[in-house]
Computed example of a mutant assay.
Amino acid sequence: MAKTIFITGASRGFGKLWAAAFLEKGHKVVATARDLRSLDDLVNKYGTNILPLQLDVNDRAADFAAIAQAKQHFGSIDVLINNAGYGLFGSIEETTEQQAREQMETNFFGLLWLTQAVLPVMRAQGHGHIIQLSSVLGLVTVPILGLYNASKFAVEGLSESLAQEVKAFGINVTLVEPNQFATDWGSASAAVTTPMPEYDGARAWLQAAASEDKIGIPEATVPAILQLIDSENPPLRLLLGKQGHPWTRQVYEGRFAEWDAWQEIAAAAHGK
Rank of each mutant, 00 (worst) to 15 (best):
E156K: 09
E156P: 03
E156V: 08
G157E: 08
L158V: 07
L158D: 05
S159Y: 00
S161R: 08
A163N: 06
A163Y: 05
Q164N: 12
N172F: 08
T174N: 02
L175T: 04
Q180K: 12
F181E: 05
A182P: 07
D184F: 00
W185F: 14
A190Q: 02
A191P: 11
V192T: 14
P195D: 08
P195H: 07
P197I: 10
E198F: 12
Y199D: 01
W205G: 07
L206H: 09
Q207R: 15
K214E: 01
K214V: 04
G216S: 03
G216E: 02
I217R: 11
P218G: 04
P218M: 04
P218E: 04
E219A: 12
T221Q: 06
T221P: 04
I225L: 11
I225W: 06
L228V: 08
I229S: 02
D230C: 00
S231L: 03
E232F: 09
N233M: 09
P234V: 04
L239H: 08
L239V: 14
L239F: 11
L239Y: 11
L239K: 09
K242R: 14
G244F: 01
H245R: 14
Q250P: 02
V251F: 07
G254W: 06
R255T: 13
A257H: 10
A257F: 04
D260A: 14
D260L: 14
W262L: 15
Q263P: 01
I265L: 15
I265F: 15
